[in-house]
Design a protein around this nucleic acid. Structure first.
Lengths: 362, 362
DNA sequence: GATGCGCGTTTGAACGTTCCAACAAATGGG
DNA sequence: CCCATTTGTTGGAACGTTCAAACGCGCATC
């Protein structure tokens, strides 16, 4: 169907193949192949001649034929799970994009596939059996997830984004150290001059949520403070109103001049609403930090903890394609600082920075 | 690397091929191939025997070999553009997921690729020249987009999600009728008993934004109202504060008992803040409708216009894989109704529905 | 001057499948 | 009852590439 080359006297119509190049450069198939794959094995003048013809004919190797002969797809599968409201969500969305961006650097491609709703494994088995992919990038590893063990059992290369909690001996995963991110956020808040620092999280029990909570405690310890006297709200993000109410209770106890670190940007939205409901100023009176640096944080001008997704993607490829046995990697997130954690308000860009602001202090 | 079958007496180690099946069923290669591709050409008893062996050996055709021989990849490319904050965004995120879900129904696969930052076309040229894909699914078609014309020139199959504004004669696109969605939202608000209905949009000039604005005007006309006396705020979503301020002006003019339709959920967030700032009750006093049904709308309990992305994805596949010349398709979005457009407040689940609420009316 | 070696190049075969033409057996019409 | 047609099955070839082995050649070695 697609025609990429113009047909002339010495270029047959359709896409140019390796034999077309060979004929034009007056060498054999194999020499053209060598020119591309092991240039050191080809004499300099020959190499130059072949490369010139490759360029002239616009030859690009047919990956499908390579895949067949090399018995290697140079492609990896990525399961997109339509369960989460039919979307990947902010983090996996970005992860997929960054995986795709980083793929060429490893001579690979990414192929998406949807899971079989009946059987978690079936989609993996099929995708692999067709020879379309060499392995998989796992995301969203859950407790009791059967996939890592199955992949191990069948010697299928894979890497996980997210700790594989069930298999502590497994080494092929990248994750983001959420706890370290929260810890850093606490340090930032202390340095910014907030007196008391609370935490708005999810109900205990989820590994991710608990990790972030521990980061908060560690941050307090770093600053020589303890959690006693502090208050921790535990509500589900599902209901924004609950989060808002929890944040209001938190603010009543901590008072102006304090700050709240939240386990998600959606919780941070609740905190911001609570700040407004309480009649306080965001940033000047109360600091708020979110998690994941979503559109919401950006729109609300809320400081947020940003996961280094691009680096996670690059690390994942490294583990997948480098031959030696990998080491688990924990990446540190970074803080995107916005006006929600600035005690001298700069939210209005029209107001000059050096204008002294009288703010009510406790 | 991967070993999917156990090696026994009559099954050689490694993946089973078509010849293994042929040997086991005592037929030729070709008959096995026919059994899978043109079962009607195979005698019933033979067919049964072959299928039994296929099942027993766990044979799955090697797609790579099929691709080579059939000269067809049965895969399509999808460009993920890392420019938008490194993410696809809510809509394209869902579109990608739904494309992947619908792919098997068309015997196809989806392959992601990142654009060459230097040259918009280069990524397409390369991906196609390698034979990895037969064509492309375009998204995010912009004004002055060189891709559709290039693809047409080179006879490359493709379909666009989003109208191709530059090429009115082009027929291969699916889009969502945003205007119709807004129009329906206006009808919903009228039926719900809101007196005056405003619109909070983006500055005029973007096709998408203007389309939604026209939907608002059409909805007013349907209800026998005109935009005179109504007020339309035009601000950029970039700055939530501007949106909030614009919404406050809007509410001052429209007064309680009115409603605001927004061109995005982020604008709706501004509207919701304006409602709170004005001391009014969301839903009971002021109706708010967003667009795209994102997490934010869900969290804020805001009625939102939901794009039928899954259907768009199915339509895209249809256009791509069905032989006959396609017709452009405009899909109608649907309203996800939440408490932000309910005049008898049900936002707090604990408060019984039948409790009469005294609300101040103008 | 025969021997061995390394370099650059070529040739045959293979990856796993389907297209194509040929074939044998069964079926039908005159 | 023979020939033409249909039905079912088969083997050779091809898709475009790389692997593995072989080859010819110049050069140093003895």
């Amino acid at each position: 169907m697609a025609d990429l080359t113009r047909a002339t006297a010495d270029t047959p119509p359709g896409r140019a193949t390796i034999v077309d190049v060979a004929r034009a450069a007056q060498v054999s198939r194999q020499t053209v192949s060598n020119a591309l794959n092991r240039p050191d094995k080809v004499a300099a003048p020959t190499l130059e001649r072949v490369l010139r013809e490759i360029d002239r004919l616009g030859f690009t190797p047919h990956i499908t034929a390579q895949q067949l002969r090399r018995r290697k797809a140079a492609a990896y599968g990525f399961e997109v799970n339509p369960s989460g409201h039919g979307r990947l969500g902010h983090i996996l969305d970005e992860f997929l994009v960054q995986l795709t961006v980083a793929a060429p650097a490893h001579g690979s491609h990414l192929m998406t596939f949807a899971p079989d709703p009946e059987d978690v494994i079936e989609g993996y088995r099929q995708t692999l059996a067709t020879g379309l992919v060499d392995g998989f990038v796992l995301a969203d590893t859950r407790h009791g997830d059967p996939r890592p063990q199955w992949l191990l059992d069948h010697h299928v290369p894979f890497v996980a984004f997210g700790r594989v909690w069930d298999l502590p001996e497994l080494r092929q995963w990248v994750d983001v150290d959420g706890g370290a991110g929260v810890r850093e956020a606490v340090a930032h808040l202390v340095a910014a001059g907030y007196d008391r620092i609370g935490f708005l999280g999810w109900p205990a029990g989820s590994p991710v949520g608990d990790d972030r909570r521990h980061g908060w405690l560690a941050g307090l310890a770093d600053a020589g403070r303890t959690a006693s006297g502090q208050l921790e709200a535990e509500e589900s993000v599902q209901d924004l109103d609950q989060a808002t109410a929890a944040a209001e209770r938190l603010l009543r106890r901590l008072g102006p001049g304090s700050a709240v670190v939240c386990a998600s940007d959606m919780l941070a939205l609740g905190a911001v609403r609570a700040v407004r409901n309480t009649g306080l100023a965001l940033g000047a009176d109360i600091g708020v930090v979110g998690f994941d640096d979503t559109d919401v944080a950006d729109a609300l001008s809320v400081t947020s903890i940003r996961q280094p997704i691009a680096e996670a993607a690059r690390t994942a490829w490294q583990m997948l394609t480098s031959p030696e046995s990998p080491r688990p990697v924990l990446l540190a997130p970074a803080l995107t600082v916005r006006s929600s954690t600035t005690r001298t308000p700069t939210s209005s860009a029209t107001r000059p920075r050096d204008t002294p602001i009288t703010e009510e202090q406790p």
